[in-house]
């Protein structure tokens, strides 16, 4: 994203509890936030409940992400 290339401090703090809580509430293994970085998609934050389905930092092209 072009608006800002620094660190998302507030998001980082919020993400930890929000992802965990969503996984609990929806009873789903993995909840993650994927960030668009130019033509790529990067897993910015992830919560895996039991099985590690998605890894933080994983990056793929935007087209391949769907």
């Amino acid at each position: 994203m072009s608006l800002y290339d620094g660190s998302y401090q507030e998001l980082r703090e919020a993400a930890v509890s929000v992802l965990h809580r969503l996984s609990d509430l929806l009873n789903i293994n993995t909840v993650y936030i994927a960030e668009r970085v130019k033509d790529n998609v990067k897993i910015a934050h992830v919560y895996n409940h039991e099985r590690e389905l998605v890894e933080a930092g994983y990056q793929t092209s935007y087209e391949a992400s769907y």
Binding site: M1, I28, N29, Y32, I33, A34, R36, L53
Partner: peptide
């Protein structure tokens, strides 16, 4: 989608299970 400010797309919030 996670939208910011003037509707720009930051990324996606996803839930995934096997």
């Amino acid at each position: 989608p996670i939208l910011v400010q003037n509707g720009e797309n930051y990324g996606t919030l996803c839930a995934l299970d096997d």
